[in-house]
C-alpha cells in the first residue's frame, strides 16, 4: 500500500471522473485508505449537490421582450431568394411540371425571336407601323381634351402661334401653380402662428 495520502488536486481528478493511467494508482490507494476515501466522499457530496441543482425558468414573456428590442434585418440576397422560392411549387412533382412548362415557353420564345431576327425588314415595318398608330392616338386624344377644356378658338390661336405659343402657355401655367402653392403655404404658416 502507498502510504502517501492523496493531494487535493488528486482528489479533484477522481471527483471529475478523469480517466488515464495516472488515475488507477489513485483509485487503488483510495480503496485501501480510509482517510482518503472519507475526503473523496466529502468532495463527492458537494459535487453531487451541485449537479442536482435545477435550472430556473425566467418569465414566459422573455422572448417577446427580447425580440421587441432586437432589429431583425433580412439581407437583400436572402429577400430576393425568398421571393423566388415563394413562386416555386413546394412538392417535387409540381416543381418538375413547372420546369417542363417553363422550358417549353422559353423554347417557343427563343424560336419566335430567331424567326423575327431572320425577317428584319418585316420586324422594322411592323414596329414603325405600331409607333405611328400610337403617336396619332396620343395626339388625337390631346387635341380632343384641349378642345373640350379651352374651346375651338383658343386651340386655333395656340396652333397659329406655333411652338413658342405652347411653351409660353405651359410656363404661364407652371408659374401660376407654383405661385398659388407658395401663397397658400405662407397663409397656412401665418394662421398657425396666430393660433
Amino acid at each position: 500500500m502507498n502510504h502517501r495520502h492523496l493531494l487535493p488536486n488528486e482528489i479533484d481528478l477522481l471527483v471529475d471522473g478523469e480517466a488515464g493511467f495516472g488515475v488507477a494508482p489513485l483509485r487503488a490507494h483510495v480503496a485501501e485508505c480510509d482517510e482518503c476515501r472519507a475526503r473523496l466522499d466529502d468532495a463527492r457530496v458537494v459535487v453531487d449537490a451541485l449537479e442536482a441543482l435545477p435550472h430556473f425558468a425566467p418569465d414566459s414573456r422573455l422572448a417577446d421582450r427580447v425580440m421587441a428590442q432586437v432589429p431583425v434585418f433580412v439581407p437583400a440576397h436572402v429577400a430576393a431568394r425568398d421571393s423566388v422560392m415563394r413562386w416555386l411549387p413546394q412538392s417535387a412533382p409540381a416543381r418538375a411540371a413547372a420546369a417542363v412548362v417553363g422550358t417549353s415557353i422559353a423554347g417557343l420564345l427563343t424560336v419566335a425571336m430567331i424567326w423575327l431576327a431572320s425577317r428584319g425588314d418585316a420586324a422594322i415595318f411592323a414596329t414603325s407601323l405600331f409607333a405611328d398608330r400610337v403617336q396619332s392616338l396620343v395626339i388625337g386624344t390631346a387635341r380632343d381634351l384641349a378642345l373640350s377644356l379651352l374651346g375651338e378658338s383658343a386651340v386655333a390661336a395656340i396652333q397659329a402661334s406655333g411652338m413658342l405659343g405652347v411653351t409660353l402657355l405651359v410656363l404661364g401655367f407652371l408659374g401660376t401653380a407654383v405661385g398659388t402653392i407658395l401663397a397658400l403655404r405662407r397663409l397656412a404658416t401665418a394662421s398657425s402662428r396666430r393660433a
Binding site: H55, P58, L62, A63, V70, V74, V78
Partner: peptide
Amino acid sequence: LEGREAAHRELIRRYERPVFSLVF
C-alpha cells in the same frame, strides 16, 4: 443571420433557462 425571427426565438428558447439560472 439571414433575418429569420423564428431562429432568434429558437436560440432564446434553448438557452433562456441556463442563462437565467446562471445570472440568477
